[in-house]
Nucleic acid binder design. Sequence first.
DNA 1: CGGGATAATTGAAACCTTTCAAGGCTGATA
DNA 2: TATCAGCCTTGAAAGGTTTCAATTATCCCG
Lengths: 360, 360
Amino acid sequence: MANMKQIAQMARVSIGTVSHVLNNSAGVREHLRRRVLQAVQTARYQPNQLARGLRRDKTDMIGMIIPDITNPFFPAVVRGAEDVAFSNSYRLILCNTDNDHSKELAHLNELHTYLPAGLIVIPSNFSDLTVQAERYRRAGTGVVCVDRLPKNWSGDSVTADNEQGAYDATRCLVKLGHTRLATITGPLHLTNAKERLSGFKRAMREVKLLLNPEYVQETTFDKRGGYLKTLTLLRLLPRPTAIFAGNDMIALGALLAIRELGLNCPKDVSLIGFDDLDLGETTDPSLSSVSQSGYQLGTRAASILLDRIQGDKSPAKHLVLETSLDLRNSVAPPPSGNRVTKPLKRRNRRDGQEIVHATS
Amino acid sequence: MANMKQIAQMARVSIGTVSHVLNNSAGVREHLRRRVLQAVQTARYQPNQLARGLRRDKTDMIGMIIPDITNPFFPAVVRGAEDVAFSNSYRLILCNTDNDHSKELAHLNELHTYLPAGLIVIPSNFSDLTVQAERYRRAGTGVVCVDRLPKNWSGDSVTADNEQGAYDATRCLVKLGHTRLATITGPLHLTNAKERLSGFKRAMREVKLLLNPEYVQETTFDKRGGYLKTLTLLRLLPRPTAIFAGNDMIALGALLAIRELGLNCPKDVSLIGFDDLDLGETTDPSLSSVSQSGYQLGTRAASILLDRIQGDKSPAKHLVLETSLDLRNSVAPPPSGNRVTKPLKRRNRRDGQEIVHATS
DNA sequence: CGGGATAATTGAAACCTTTCAAGGCTGATA
DNA sequence: TATCAGCCTTGAAAGGTTTCAATTATCCCG
């Protein structure tokens, strides 16, 4: 691989001049500049980013840490961030924490030694990002938090209006005539889960509906959690007629559970999710959901970060994006009047089905 | 951030000794070693990876290039690769090419200057990776190709047995009694698409079924492509009774099209996809699919790469993973006998629906 | 044409490691 | 106790860039 020294020789100039041409860091007379560019071309020279980073104390990499690349919502965020970063010639180093606290820590520590220009983080469960981020801040490296915030987070953030989204969804169910509303929340130490629950509660309060505490189930943000907690909910008496799921993965699990118990969505149970993932369009029934644009979350976060990199010293920004309710076939009015509650089918799973049962 | 010099001072040894302790590159007597480790601890020292990489001419990063992070199949591969890489303390730099040739090129070029230890690539459409990879090989950097191969690829590769998988799926449809089988393939310059088509054809040939050339439609590996080509297929006369889709995203699009034309899957049209994505479980009807483990593709690729990094000089490896057929509700025998072909419903899309129509 | 001011160019230091060669120490053997 | 081998330890160079200070070239004005 060619280096600057060789380019300098080819162009019959000093190394310093080559650098100046490449970075526009000082005036260089046209004929020299041309010679340098020429040499760069013919040698297909590309500056060694490690050396450059070492010297500059900063690279053109942006670290991005996400909890689970397997949940389709996060790739959407990544995509957004990548698009903005790439077109500003920053590159993304993507780290997957697998929702594992220690893995997040490891990434956070390591990343630091690559001197990234900034960090975009979707905190994992139990993240103590706040402490870690301090190290980065002290080194002048921006950190933007996306989707959910760790405890005591005071830095830049981009989130959706979770509270309002949940509120809207709940109001919609209420308007359809439901009175026995349940919700399956994500882990309540995550701000987004908490906010969605409080939106749900606000809507209930507003119409003076009583909320049976058993109707609020907390679980992880995945299909399995949704599946298990839905089984729990649907065995309660009286059985809830509508479920607001903390996200679409939970809703997907709910759908499976509803089906398995011989019930029908939306006839017996209405269901609304959160995120409005693409895959909600093709489910049976198609899934209603609170739509938030993961892509936008990503682009906005990257933009804020780029501003910081370019020297924006203004106080922390907290961007909250609007949500909208996307109604499809998974909602309907509750089963008519006081009709006798339909009995549940005996549970009968196919062999080899994948869902693992929790021990607790 | 602390550096080696400070550690050396704290431990009252030379910089060289610190390095030796950290890398086990020479015997260091126990009491000095302890002093160094102590200092490292208290200063929370972490070696600067840029400097290290610069000196060693190689970093602990593995570049991974994928065509579209938004297609759930690829994150699964990433996940696999990441798990293996991470546990061997390599880190993944993920680059998304958006199926864009020039973006792939840009990433390939850039990545080079970060001196990654190796590369895992799922080539994009029209990739001329083969040429690019040469540069890496000359620098002693391994490149492993996953899922599909670019033209003239002679390096390491990990792929699924696309031909056999497609064959099995087709045989299954035939066994159910279908005779008018159609297929929607991915871009045929991609090896995986080509292999799947040839598996399909082999099955047809074996049972001496005639293949109407119009029954083979080529498109991109996404929902929109599947949607459009299914519309085309279902307007042909006689109408095919079964479709083998080149992947699950295409199958998802097909499902939408079938539904939109007022037809029923599986009663009017049977459908089998490829990849066996999670989301196939919750579609209406649930989607049958040729199952290939993206996760395994990823782990295997990473393993091969790690071997190369550790000095494995054996000839290029071509790992081909088995597939299995996962049957769900999207397949059934063809509509009974010579029943009059059901008329198509007039097309009538909801406003604001997202699918964009191609101009051609 | 000389002088000064300004612009262009250069050389070398610095960034933080790794690694090599050289020097120092330890302990054993004679 | 002197010598030697062998192991430890060290200092310095090298890796490729940026950047600062210093030098050189250019230009304009008198």
